[in-house]
Design a protein around this nucleic acid. Structure first.
Length: 557
RNA sequence: GCGCCAGUAGCUCAGUGGAUAGAGCACCGGCCUCCGGAGCCGGGUGCGGAGGUUCGAUUCCUCUCUGGCGUACCA
């Protein structure tokens, strides 16, 4: 249990005792103690922790909240050594002012925990799978994929830090129509590059990257596919093309700091018969019906907007059927929680996928979908139209070249998934030095050089006189540091990685203030040791938070 | 038409059933004899609109306006 939780629990205990005492003395009447909140107020002069119990009891007790608050106050233990002040304020809050020395022990604890500081075990080892990006291997990664990559990876880090067992997965859409198209496109380019007559497919992929892929294939395989029968030729080209494209995606993501545990092939579900098996089982359960020669899922019966085709009239299962088989496969692998990060354009898919899982006997709540609003790209104030087919889009590689990996990741993770995002390329380029990521990194680099300057003077953290840290900037910084474990746990539980960059900015701001107000390298040895310890603890916390969002913590800039 | 998401400061975005709604950028002032000025301090009549629930609504509900997306035997 971390420091803040400890204090909260202490307060909760005292309030409960006071309430029961009041009830026993007939000062208050109520049936049950409501689940009251102990929160850190925004406003500093509202104390360290505010309790809203009195307001929640108003109805039951039939008294105005402020009066109830007074009764609670009267029944609290008189001597609480950690409490410096207790106020009744506003509509009936009980504001607890805790002795600032009570937070100080967090500092040696941070030093001791080091890389583990901020981590907790609230996840209780539950198995979580996060599937993200899963872009079609027929092109390059674009801005939307970049956002998904940053979000998914950071969420994975967060949940791991909060004690979940995390598995990251990429679903490879290597089956279906688009692969056919991909094959046709590759074939056309292949023939073109080898000076043969060709016909480019109407809905083929026009991107330059396809040409590059084919060039690579020709470089290694030559013209040996030229005289083959077209079906076989395409088969070869598809195999080689997918391999090449996937390698590219993998490299790009790796450069972005994203690594997967599992790369899962859609084709493998067809090959293993799982798609057919799933369709069969669903038919047995009476979930499917035949209509116009196709097999339909009655999705409208469990939350979908309308019925969906599972097997086309030509006997070929749809993507949706494969996706159901895929999610069933995930459940069968024993995960407690499945998290999908999808683009908002897939939102129609959510209800029916959850519904389908429910119909197959799984708990739909164990499948959580984070819908990520799409990224709109602005250039010169205009919206850049993006089309994968036409091969016109800004790639993740280009983004990293232009604004750098750290800035890109910070920028994406900073925003909550469900806000639409305008990414102004010109702004990101021209103002990249103003990006908040540098503010945070600067704080880290500053501490590093400070500690370097004081090298050799590191005192034993357990012997440092923490009580010397009494300046408001020092106290504020210590409290900020103490908040990290809860911040991580909450962000993980709510699946909201965007809280971490904000915390990092706040922590950096507190440090910069402290640094300006309090000189560390002073004559007074005891004070110097205390301030260096505080700085070192801040360094650890900053680094750990930056690690969680995949941003580097540089020692100098 | 129907459905999903969103409308908060000049801009990009946080946030909460409660006590004076925040940050970054931009703009205007200050601050280095001294640990990194990529810093610090100060400067703000903003929750799209209308009803409702509540002791209390920017937050929850309904309607409405605006924007994005979806509404394929594509994935």
């Amino acid at each position: 249990m971390n420091r803040i939780q400890e204090i909260k629990e202490r307060i909760r205990g005292e309030v409960v005792i006071a309430l029961e005492k009041a009830k026993a003395a007939d000062a208050l009447t109520f049936e049950m103690i409501p689940a009251f909140a102990i929160e850190v107020p925004r406003e500093k002069n509202h104390g360290d922790f505010a309790v809203n119990a009195a307001m929640l009891l108003a109805k039951q007790a039939g008294k105005p909240p402020r009066e109830i608050a007074q009764i609670i106050q009267k029944n609290l233990e008189e001597e609480l050594p950690w409490l410096t002040k207790l106020e009744i304020a506003g509509p009936g809050f009980l504001n607890f002012f805790v002795d600032s020395l009570y937070f100080h022990p967090v500092l040696p604890a941070i030093l001791a925990e080091d890389e583990a500081y901020g981590h907790s075990d609230v996840g209780d080892g539950r198995k979580v799978q996060i599937e993200f990006v899963s872009a079609n291997p027929t092109g390059l990664l674009h801005m939307g994929n970049a956002r998904g990559a940053a979000l998914g990876d950071s969420l994975g880090n967060l949940m791991k830090a909060a004690g979940y067992k995390v598995s990251r997965e990429y679903y490879i859409n290597d089956a279906g129509n688009q692969v056919e198209n991909f094959g046709k496109s590759l074939e056309a380019r292949y023939l073109e590059l080898l000076g043969q007559p060709f016909e480019f497919p109407e809905d083929g992929y026009h991107g330059e990257d396809i040409v590059d892929t084919v060039k690579n294939i020709i470089a290694s395989e030559g013209d040996r596919f030229l005289h083959m029968e077209t079906a076989l030729r395409r088969e070869f080209l598809i195999q080689l093309g997918l391999k090449e494209k996937l390698a590219g995606i993998r490299n790009t993501l790796s450069a972005f700091g994203v690594h997967y545990d599992v790369w899962f092939s859609e084709q493998s579900l067809h090959d293993s018969g799982e798609v057919q098996e799933t369709i069969h089982d669903m038919k047995e359960r009476g979930l499917l019906l035949e209509k116009e020669g196709a097999l339909w899922l009655e999705a409208s019966a469990f939350g979908g907007e309308k019925d969906e085709v599972m097997v086309r009239a030509n006997g070929v299962p749809t993507y949706f059927a494969a996706d159901i088989a895929y999610h069933r496969n995930k459940f069968r692998r024993g995960f407690d929680l499945l998290i999908n990060i999808w683009g908002a354009d897939h939102h129609g898919h959510v209800a029916r996928m959850k519904g389908a899982m429910g119909a197959l006997g799984y708990d739909p709540d164990h499948l959580q979908v984070i819908l990520m609003q799409l990224v709109r790209l602005l250039k010169g104030g205009d919206i850049v139209r993006m089309s994968k087919r036409a091969g016109e889009y800004v790639t993740l590689n280009e983004l990293m070249e232009e604004v750098g990996r750290d800035a890109a990741r910070f920028f994406f993770v900073m925003r909550s998934a469900d806000s639409q995002m305008d990414f102004d390329l010109d702004l990101a380029k021209s103002q990249s030095a103003d990006n908040p990521v540098y503010y945070v990194q600067y704080a880290h680099a500053r501490i590093h050089s400070l500690l370097k300057m004081a090298a050799g003077e590191k005192a034993d953290p357990d012997k440092v006189r923490l009580e010397l840290l009494g300046h408001p900037s020092e106290i504020a910084l210590i409290r900020k540091l103490a908040e990290l474990p809860e911040e991580v746990a909450q962000a993980a539980a709510a699946m909201e990685p965007h809280r971490m960059p904000r915390y990092a900015m706040e922590l950096a701001a507190q440090f910069h203030s402290f640094y300006t107000d309090c000189r560390c390298l002073v004559e007074d040895e005891a004070l110097r040791d205390a301030r260096l310890l505080l700085s070192d603890a801040t360094r650890i916390a900053l680094r750990n938070v930056l690690n969680l969002i995949g941003v580097s913590a540089p020692e100098r800039m």
